[in-house]
Design a protein around this nucleic acid. Sequence first.
DNA 1: CGTGCCAGGTGCCCT
DNA 2: AGGGCACTTGGCACG
Lengths: 260, 260
Amino acid sequence: MKRTINLKGTAKELAQQLSEESCKKTIVIFGFCKAIFDGRIKSFLPGGDRLLIVKKDESLILHGSKGVKPLNWQKSGAGKINYSAKGSTLVVSTFRPKTKETLEILFTRVYQTTTFDDHDSATLNIFGSESDLSDYLFDHPEIIGPDFQPTTREYETPFGFIDLRGVDKHGNIIIVEVKKQSATPADAHQLKRYVDYFQDVEKVSVRGVLVAAGFSEKVLSLLRTYDFKPVVVFWQEIFPSKATLNMSHTLDDFYNNNPK
Amino acid sequence: MKRTINLKGTAKELAQQLSEESCKKTIVIFGFCKAIFDGRIKSFLPGGDRLLIVKKDESLILHGSKGVKPLNWQKSGAGKINYSAKGSTLVVSTFRPKTKETLEILFTRVYQTTTFDDHDSATLNIFGSESDLSDYLFDHPEIIGPDFQPTTREYETPFGFIDLRGVDKHGNIIIVEVKKQSATPADAHQLKRYVDYFQDVEKVSVRGVLVAAGFSEKVLSLLRTYDFKPVVVFWQEIFPSKATLNMSHTLDDFYNNNPK
DNA sequence: CGTGCCAGGTGCCCT
DNA sequence: AGGGCACTTGGCACG
């Protein structure tokens, strides 16, 4: 049985076939279209050649000729997708009741319509997230400082979750905010929020540490103002070995597993 | 001349044809593949039916059967895309020199390979951004408060740009932070930093106002702590008329323009 | 080119 | 269902 089928017919016939295949197969349309979106914002897209994907979960993605980000889209579960014909124009439209958002895509030319009977039960496995970095720092506290003793991961406060909490040898609380990327001013402010919480509410001496891949001059200046310590961590150079370790059993599947 | 062409052949022949078409046409592959990504993060994706898009600008998008977000991707300009064959397996691989990121996609089955000779010079037109909302509030200060007198848009401080600045009838400075969506704790704190800046540096009395589509209890509690005023704005109900006005000349094109 | 920041952000996990 | 937040965030505008 063929996995992909290329549909033929007039706009009306296509609309009919697509309505039947909807939610059963992935639908891909190559064509010339305009699109108009109205909801949280208004956007309109003049005519051009586009690639439309409609998945079985009713997520809709309209791609132009450039870039990773779609021109227009609709999330899964947002609302029903309708296929209809206005003369020779194939109309794909969605309506999201909750937010009263509408998306209308008008194909004045359809070059190719493909249905894809895809089966995929696999899930993407990821290692190297911020959470993994926090775990790593918990196990390697000397990276934060010579006298850092971690106590808690994911500590909740009314101001948010603290990535890593610990003490120094004097018993001072140390709050660590962990970022995988370069630090932003918002990161420094976020840490300030946590430190303020402990100083105001728990009436104790608190030191703030911001871990990141890099620090701009602006952020460094902020950290000096708040008397926080920046710690540069080259996470990309640290995690591969650990990643390979953690993922080895699954990676083994990956390299040895043959498709059914 | 046909806009879409479906290629045939062995993995080796496909790799050869795709190498030639690369950057000239959009390439779409329907197939069964695994993928492994190594860079800022490590990810691997077990076998499944997938849809691969490679655009002319060398942005690469690998879609699974669900969701708007791709499973794996590569940004335009990141690095060269290579097509090769390992036995009957079609291998699409990318290398991003700057971050030493690699993505390898192994198609053990190719159901269909389509090239799309797409032409698109149009750009997406949008109205309703946060900037538009700030403009609107500048023109309708009564929404902020009965005695709010706006003075400056996009006022720069060492802590960042202030969306809207003004005074009340007593001459107190009012700092307005504008968010189109529901307010987050970070938004409240961002405003706090601005207000602190003016009170510390300019030694004046400052009131803070946070404009957003909605406020959670947590954020409201924060605002009470800081003595800031929340203002709910139903931007979605305000902007359509303005949007239509601003976009009318282009919308006219949109509705009347026929495809070439 | 880096830095900062908005986005129709999306997705994930939590209550 | 709604909040809080990370993200290979992406993309843009600006110094």
